[in-house]
Design a protein around this nucleic acid. Sequence first.
DNA 1: GTGAAAGCGCTAACAT
DNA 2: ATGTTAGCGCTTTCAC
Lengths: 333, 333
Amino acid sequence: MTTMGDVARLAGVSASTVSHVINGTRRVDTGTRLRVEAAIAETGYRRNGVARSLAAGRTHTVGLSISALTNPYFGSLVHAVERALSEAGYVLIVGDSHDDAESEKRVTDSLLDRQVDGLIVAPAAGSERTTLPAIVRTGTPLVLIDRAVDIDCDQVGPENVESARALTEHLIEHGHRRIAVVRGIAGISSTVERFDGYVAALAAHGIPLDSDLVIEGESSTDVAEREVRAAMAREHRPTALVSMNNAMTIGALKALRSLDLSIPADVAFACYDDFEWSDLFEPKLTAAAQDVETIGATAAQLLLRRVGAEDFAAQRIQVPTTFHHRNSCGCAS
Amino acid sequence: MTTMGDVARLAGVSASTVSHVINGTRRVDTGTRLRVEAAIAETGYRRNGVARSLAAGRTHTVGLSISALTNPYFGSLVHAVERALSEAGYVLIVGDSHDDAESEKRVTDSLLDRQVDGLIVAPAAGSERTTLPAIVRTGTPLVLIDRAVDIDCDQVGPENVESARALTEHLIEHGHRRIAVVRGIAGISSTVERFDGYVAALAAHGIPLDSDLVIEGESSTDVAEREVRAAMAREHRPTALVSMNNAMTIGALKALRSLDLSIPADVAFACYDDFEWSDLFEPKLTAAAQDVETIGATAAQLLLRRVGAEDFAAQRIQVPTTFHHRNSCGCAS
DNA sequence: GTGAAAGCGCTAACAT
DNA sequence: ATGTTAGCGCTTTCAC
């Protein structure tokens, strides 16, 4: 393996000079630079980022702890973050917490050990008890993504309340009064806020909240399917359904299909989270789409800003969703 | 920031001893160990992975260059790789090449600079000309994933020929003779091999290859949609369609829908690559599903093996797909 | 415009 | 069982 010293010797200069031509950190005589560049080319020298990081005290590396990489939604998020970071010359180290506080702690510890310059975390449930405080204690710049947590740091996520309210209200406007909601996993902000939106819409229209219509899908497709099937099998069943995240939607649709209920004739349907196949489905799905690209890019920017200079007030950014009026709600094509 | 020296001083031992208790690299008297551990707890010491890597000559880090993270298929792949690696105490650094040889080069260069212990690459088209040879030259362990390339290194991907043949043949068995194929992007092994499978099926049944039935989707949903629509608008249109990857399938389905053609009555349909929503679609999609988990895990294992000890013969592993007989092909429920 | 030299925080061979 | 010491390959003051 060839080092900077080898290059220096070959070019007849000091290692210091080689370092400066590589990094452009000070004026170097053109002739000298050329000799150094020639030596680099000849030796096939490649700088050692680890040594560089140790000496410079920065790694140009950002860690991302994601709660479930198998969720296509998070795939796009990682993509957006990665793009913004790489444009700024940073690389991304990812860890998957499997939505479990304990493995999340392991993931972020390992990231911190590796001296990441900053951390982006999609918090798992329970994260605020151990993981997050531990990170804050290290002083490493931190941005939370996707889910809000009651802690003082930058946070970026989708708008929830108003979006869920709009979905629900849209169903109400179609004349529905018995609207069931399929909630995601308990204990996280998005579930709570989206449910709040649902409740607000009912309240605004004088419809009492009926606990029989609140379906706990626990953010598992299978659970959602089972519970929706149960709810739809009961007498006096709901005439409409709002699903609060993509896993819930898949579960709900499976249930409706297995019951041979047609959408929107038997039950109208609207969902939070959009799919690539939303207008392939029959009927096309009415959905509130998150702007994942913006969420990811914003998180990266917030973080980078903090990595550069310290101390801003923490920001909470809610990225608006886009309401796609399609047909599952009962609207005509 | 507290270093090992600080801990050592506090515990009244040498840095060397601290290192050994942390890494368990040699016997340490219980009393001493306890004092060191207390000092670690008291100072909140956290080891510096960068310094550690520099001194030890290994980073316990693996780089992954993926061609398009937005593709849900790759999201699962990253997930599988990440899991296998983290179980072995490695972390994953991801870069997205956007399926472009040039940015792939940048990504892998940056990974190599960071002294990754190994590299997993889902090669972009053209990768074999620049990127791959450059990696091989460094001697860094390398595993190719997803697509095969004519180069001597470990490779893991899905089985293509036989799977595509089976899909096509299944359509033939349903009585179809005019079967169109929607191909992915040119110049990569999976496109070639899957097409070979299609051709083989036709040949085996004495059906001549008709170039009018070969649709170039270029791995872009939009292109696929446009081209399929054009093909279906022509007179004497195909009675069946095989789609060769998930993006092609979405494009093809959009085209059929916009033409108001019903599946399988007007055209029978089968696709390579499965979806989470395959049996939500009406009719349920007949598909050959890749075993992404196995592909990812295998790649990680192959790499780790090579990181440990050197020099095995390169292996090429093809992971079989699973044929899901559903209804879009014309089979009954 | 260039070089010498002092670390960055750790590991590991060598002593004791 | 523990300490000493010499690096790992680079950045960066400081001096010329």
